[in-house]
């Protein structure tokens, strides 16, 4: 019987430690609550610019998507065709990432040429979207990315490699 009681004696030995681990001093827990509060409030404040930015993007893209659709169609098809042809001809260059390369090249060329209204992105509140004309060029490079996404549907001939 007494031997069966052993675990509780062992528990008594541990008992003083348990509250010590869980307790924590009063001031430190207050500081921790304060710190967590600041982190949560900071996170909420941070979401304001994110929402603003997303709203601005929706306005920009939403208003210009119909103008850019034919171009998107043309360039996207072109990119897919180019990928297919490159795959068929088994060129030495990295075929799978060719559309991404095209996207990066077009984007960087247009970016360096100053065709993107980068300034407008900086403060969405002060952006005059009437002046956001080079959106077509932006789409022209974005379609490269679209082509890259479509890349998955083109089967890669492993035998050819």
């Amino acid at each position: 019987m007494n031997q069966g009681y052993q675990p509780s004696i062992a528990n008594q030995g541990f008992q003083p430690e348990l509250p010590k681990n869980n307790r924590g001093s009063g001031s430190s827990s207050l500081v921790e609550k304060l710190v967590k509060g600041v982190l949560i409030i900071g996170g909420i404040i941070f979401l304001i610019p994110v929402v603003l930015f997303v709203v601005c993007l929706v306005i920009v893209y939403g208003s210009s998507i119909f103008n850019a659709l034919p171009l998107l169609d043309f360039m996207g098809t072109g990119t897919i065709l180019l990928t297919g042809i490159t795959l068929m001809n088994n060129k030495k260059i990295s075929k799978k990432y060719l559309p991404l390369l095209l996207f990066a090249m077009t984007f960087s060329i247009l970016f360096l040429a100053g065709q993107y209204n980068v300034q407008s992105f900086n403060c969405p509140l002060h952006t005059n979207y009437q002046l956001f004309m080079p959106i077509i060029q932006l789409f022209a490079s974005m379609v490269g990315l679209v082509g890259f996404c479509f890349n998955g549907i083109i089967p890669i001939n492993k035998k050819g490699e």
């Binding site: 900071g42 404040i45 610019p49 994110v50 930015f53 980068v118 900086n122 403060c123």
Partner: peptide, 28 residues
Amino acid sequence: LRPILGLVTGFLGAGFLSIFIFQGGNLR
């Protein structure tokens, strides 16, 4: 999210409030 927003939009990135502060645009 913060560095994505910072890198995409070109904020200076010293805290998320820079969106309200740097109206001149730091890419300049």
